[in-house]
Structure formats: C-alpha cells, structure tokens
C-alpha cells in the first residue's frame, strides 16, 4: 500500500505511554513519516502550543494528571488557535465525548475500538474540514469587511417590508441614525417626499428585469438634511430573505457644483449676447456719424481734421476689440450648445 507522503506534525497529549505508542504505530501504517510530539501533562502541552504553533492536529486524552474534563477541552481549544483537536476517550466517557463536539472538538475516538484505517480517516477528515472552514471564515470576514468598512454608505433591506436588515459604518455616519435605530426603520423613513413612488416603480416596474439598476434619489438624514444620492442596488439573499443590497453615493455637492457652473454659464451667455448685440450698437452709430461727417465734405481746419481722425481711429480700435471678444465668446457658447 502506498503511504501518505505529506508531512504531518501531531501533538499527542496522553499520559498513558501504551496508548501513545499505539497511536503512533497506527499513524505510521498510513502515513510515511508522521512527526509526533508527545506530552503527558496539560502544562507541557501548553508550553508546546505556545512555542510552536505548527501542529496539524492535536490528540487529547480527556483525563490528564493535571487537568481534565470540560475545562481541559476549553483550555486546549483556546490554545490550539484553530488547529483541529481529536479527543481520545474510553467507554466510560462516551456521553461526555459526544457533548465535547459542541465545545469545538473535531472528533472523538474510542481508544478500545481504534484501528489504523479508522484513525487515518479521522485525521484526514479533521484536517481537511478544518481547512475548508478556515477558508470559509476568511472569505466571510473579507466580504463582511467589504460591506462594513466600505467608504460609501451601504445597506441591505428586505424587498417586501423595506426594513433595514444591515447597515455599514459609512451609512451610520452619513444619515446620523445609529445601527440600532436603522434596524427599526424601513427605507421609506430615509426617503424624501415623493421618492417612495419612484422606488416602488423601479422595484415593480420595467426595471424588474434588470438585475442591477442605478438611479438618483433624494434622501433625508436624521437631522432632515436633504441628500442627493446616486443609488446602485442589486438583489441578494440575506438570511434566506429576499433582499436588496444598496450602495448610496452622496452627490449633493456634485450637483450643487454643476448648478453653479450652469448659472455662471448662463450669465456668460448673456454677456456674450450683450457684447455682440448691445455694446456694438452705439459704436456702430458713432462710426456712422464720423463717416457721415467725412462724406459731407465739411471744411475742417488742420487740427480739427486730426481730432476727427483720432476719434475715428479710436472707434475702429474699439470695434476690433468687440469683434474679438464676440468671436471668442461665440466659440464657447456654441461649443456648449453642441
């Protein structure tokens, strides 16, 4: 038979030398090179677990000279930092062994019934299941952090009752309600007037086919401040309830900026219109008058003639300036209209 060639480190906490030898022998039958560390007291086990956390599995005899019973299990489990623990028991402890599973023991083995394949199966099962559970806990933690530490306000609400099921820190900070308050509220409580209808339309209407929708909403904070928010929402199952997960981005400032710019732009258009139509009218009149004066062959003496020429020159310069401004503003106004 081919033996398992992976490296395993076992900590065997067992005061009965015979039982320890038996376990080591049985392990060797299926595992090529099992590394075992043998301790006979809880104190020694504690030292080993503190110094060296690289065990793959712990065997624990439930009656040790310096510690036993439920407290022993609890202490070892807390020291094991996630390493699976298999309890070794005699017949007399059977009932207690079964109960020990709820304390975090991976498995219990009756020493009198132990066989090499059974032991090997139990070891592999405990290690693999433990790894799987750790992965699961890791990913759950990652996703939970992604939600709870997300800088954008997020929440989960029940699709039918609209009740808040979970909220993150950013939402609590943005809306001013505590988590406790949120969980007694529904989405309706943070919607500004007229917004509920919109939400219902989106949830029931044509958007239903779209799994993800994005929309603008007006929300109210606890202090009744109105927020313009961009909502992104997606359906999820939350504790077996049909729910929606929502990300709300506050775009109140963004919208205010855009409005300011739009106002400025309108004023600018007005100025451009004034430049092009109003300012030039009196200038055109002035230039016409100068031309008229010239065409009338009025006999002007040397100095007066020069004065007229200067007036004309100034008017022409002003004309060039107005045309220049007008051209520039036209470009901007038309670019805006496109």
């Amino acid at each position: 038979m081919r033996k398992d060639s992976k490296t395993y480190n076992f900590l065997i906490i067992e005061d009965n030398l015979g039982d320890y030898v038996l376990i080591e022998e049985y392990l060797s039958e299926y595992i090529l090179d099992p590394h075992t560390t043998h301790v006979v007291t809880f104190d020694k086990a504690k030292e080993n677990l503190k110094d060296n956390g690289e065990f793959d599995l712990i065997f624990l005899d439930l009656s040790l000279p310096d510690h036993s019973g439920e407290d022993l299990i609890k202490d070892v489990i807390s020291l094991s930092k996630g390493i699976p623990v298999i309890a070794l028991t005699g017949f007399s402890d059977l009932e207690f062994s079964i109960r020990s599973l709820s304390l975090g023991i991976s498995d219990y083995l009756l020493k009198d019934e132990l066989t090499p394949p059974f032991l090997y199966k139990s070891v592999i099962y405990a290690i693999e299941r433990n790894r799987y559970i750790e992965d699961l806990q890791d990913s759950e933690k990652r996703y939970s952090e992604l939600f709870h530490l997300n800088p954008s306000p997020m929440w989960v609400y029940d699709e039918n009752s609209l009740a808040f099921l979970d909220v993150n820190e950013a939402a609590i900070n943005k809306y001013g309600y505590s988590e406790k308050e949120f969980k007694k509220m529904t989405v309706e409580d943070i919607l500004a007037k007229g917004q509920l209808q919109k939400l219902e339309e989106i949830n029931n209407g044509e958007n239903k086919k779209k799994v993800v929708y994005s929309n603008l909403f007006r929300h109210l904070t606890k202090s009744e401040k109105i927020l313009d928010v961009e909502i992104e929402s997606a359906p999820i199952l939350f504790n077996d309830r049909k729910a929606k997960m929502v990300v709300a981005n506050d775009i109140t400032d963004k919208i205010r900026h855009i409005q300011t710019i739009e106002q400025q732009n309108n004023t600018f258009k007005e100025i451009a219109w004034i430049q092009s139509h109003v300012v030039r009218a009196p200038l055109a009149r002035m230039m016409g008058l100068i031309n008229l004066l010239e065409s009338m062959d009025v006999d002007l003496s040397g100095e007066n003639k020069q004065i007229l020429e200067y007036i004309q020159k100034s008017a022409e310069e002003l004309d060039v300036i107005i045309r220049d401004i007008s051209k520039k503003s036209e470009n901007i106004v038309y670019a805006d209209e496109k």
């Binding site: 139509h277 030039r280 055109a284 008229l292």
Partner: peptide, 27 residues
C-alpha cells in the same frame, strides 16, 4: 450692428434678401 456670425448663414436662406452688411455705415 451686432457681430454675431450666425446671421450671415440665416440671411442667405431668404430669397428676398439681396445683401447683408454690418454697420458701421461708410459712404
């Protein structure tokens, strides 16, 4: 009297218009 360049384009669409100019008026 305005110097809005769109006027030229509009003027050319009307058959009655035979000429278009911006004042100032010279002889």
């Amino acid at each position: 009297s305005s110097v809005d360049s769109t006027n030229h384009g509009l003027a050319s669409r009307h058959p009655n218009v035979i000429h278009f100019f911006e004042k100032s008026i010279t002889f």
